[in-house]
């Protein structure tokens, strides 16, 4: 890896990047993190009709085994602190899909005193899926969008160095 890092970006490395990204995007293990109503739709998405497994996404019970966190539901202030802990426990590289208006921005519960208006106040979010609750189709679309995003990533450069390397090349 270190040898490749010193090299300018050849076709070979981009192909390797693509290959790595392709393998990773095809086995996105998501953590079962159902908070509220949206969790039921998330379950139905993983259920027989929409079948999220088609995209290589399977549910995991613990953060330590998962690459993706789907925040499905209302994030209360009491839960927000826990969410941060759970996110920190996930191994890098990790992604977050915020599902439903509640976790996007507070949604229906912006009027509430005990709700954190948006999960992006606590952890970084990659894809926002709108809806209250989003249909299984929209969550699937959100997952595909995340896969698109993952295909753009470059891994054969050390994190933080990519811009400078790209500039040299």
């Amino acid at each position: 890896m270190s040898l490749l890092n010193t090299m300018p970006e050849f076709t070979v490395t981009t192909k390797i990047d693509e290959m790595l990204n392709w393998t990773r995007k095809s086995s996105l293990w998501y953590m079962l993190f159902g908070l509220a109503c949206c969790a039921i739709e998330m379950m139905q998405t993983g259920g027989p009709r929409s079948d999220l497994d088609r995209f290589g996404a399977v549910p995991r019970a613990t953060p330590r085994q998962s690459d993706l966190m789907i925040i499905a539901g209302t994030l209360t202030l009491k839960m927000a602190l826990r969410t941060k802990v759970l996110y920190d426990q996930m191994p890098d590289p990790k992604y977050v899909i915020s599902m439903g208006s509640c976790s996007n921005c507070g949604g229906l519960f912006q009027l509430a005193y005990s709700v954190c208006d948006g999960v992006d106040k606590v952890i970084p979010v990659d894809v926002y899926v709108p809806g209250c609750p989003p249909r299984p189709e929209s969550l699937t679309e959100g997952l595909l969008k995340l896969q698109e995003k993952m295909m753009q990533e470059k891994w054969l450069v050390r994190r933080g160095e990519d811009e400078s390397v790209a500039a040299q090349a």
């Binding site: 202030l77 602190l81 921005c105 507070g106 912006q110 005193y113 709700v115 954190c116 208006d117 106040k121």
Partner: peptide, 12 residues
């Protein structure tokens, strides 16, 4: 309503 809770602001 409090304006923040453990550093999380409650207004958007």
């Amino acid at each position: 309503e409090p304006t923040e809770y453990h550093g999380i602001s409650t207004k958007r």
